[in-house]
């Protein structure tokens, strides 16, 4: 079985699939692994694991801060790959999507990164600053190793792009709920339903929605429309505020899964 198949299976068995995001290395290496383990144990269907970058231009203040702290703590791409191995060794079987910006991956070497990520037990990649137009090489490498390469769509994507992006995205397509950066919003966009319908009209593949989702009510509303729900900043905030971070993460995931 290829790594990507596990993602496909997850969408077949869990509707909607709940996918939290957490920054590897935040607030420190060990705690971030404990948080991911707690999320998995509390019922997360997949996990998005953030690779820190110094200049995360698609991220809002919460995730920016988490990546800065992780970098100050010595987090590197190599340690992120090691983290995936360690998490797999601890018995977690849910799909892992590594989410990171393109420059650190270029510095690591794309071919080497894809190979090491697959070997460590990752199932796919999400690169927010790499639209399909620039991703030819990485796409071929991921196909070789059986990793998903998940592309994003935005509410302002026009029909031709929706067709192209859904055709080339593998595993699922990541719908950004609003034009903007990551971070909690008080309300869901009214236009989300229409956006999802426009994408469904041209693609049968799974769609997960992220950016701006922070409450169980919002998660439930999105879950009724999409195949997957992604929550990042709200989890990071919940963990931030707590003394016992893994327990806070578990409580957060459980509340979202209800």
């Amino acid at each position: 079985m290829k790594p990507i198949d596990k993602i496909t299976q997850t969408f077949e068995q869990n509707k909607p699939a709940f996918m939290p995001y957490f920054t590897l290395g935040y607030p420190d290496y060990e705690t971030s692994l404990a948080v991911v383990q707690a999320c998995a144990a509390a019922g997360a269907d997949m996990m998005e694991l953030g690779i820190p970058f110094s200049d995360p231009l698609a991220d809002g203040p919460t995730i920016q801060h988490s990546t800065q702290v992780a970098l100050q703590g010595g987090m590197t791409v190599e340690r992120c790959v090691t983290a995936v191995s360690t998490l797999r060794a601890s018995g977690i079987t849910i799909p892992f999507l590594l989410m990171g910006y393109i420059n650190p991956l270029l510095a690591y070497g794309l071919a080497r990164f894809v190979q090491d990520a697959a070997q460590a037990g990752a199932n796919g990649l999400i690169i927010p600053d790499l639209p399909p137009d620039e991703a030819g090489e990485l796409e071929a490498l991921c196909a070789e190793q059986g990793l998903a390469l998940v592309y994003l769509l935005s509410p302002n994507s026009f029909e031709e792009r929706i067709k192209m992006v859904t055709r080339r995205s593998t595993g699922f397509t990541y719908l950004v709920s609003v034009t903007g950066i990551t971070g909690a919003r008080t309300e869901l966009s009214q236009a989300l339903g229409g956006f999802i319908r426009r994408v469904r009209a041209v693609s049968q593949r799974p769609l997960a929605v992220g950016f701006g989702i922070s409450t169980p009510q919002q998660a439930q509303a999105v879950g009724e429309l999409a195949d997957g729900v992604i929550i990042g900043s709200a989890l990071v905030k919940a963990v931030d505020a707590a003394k016992d971070k893994p327990t806070a993460a578990a409580t957060f995931v459980a509340s979202m899964k209800k």
Partner: peptide
């Protein structure tokens, strides 16, 4: 060169 940007900026 190229266009290494979030999808939201591609239409723009």
């Amino acid at each position: 060169g190229g266009q290494f940007v979030p999808e939201t900026l591609m239409p723009a």
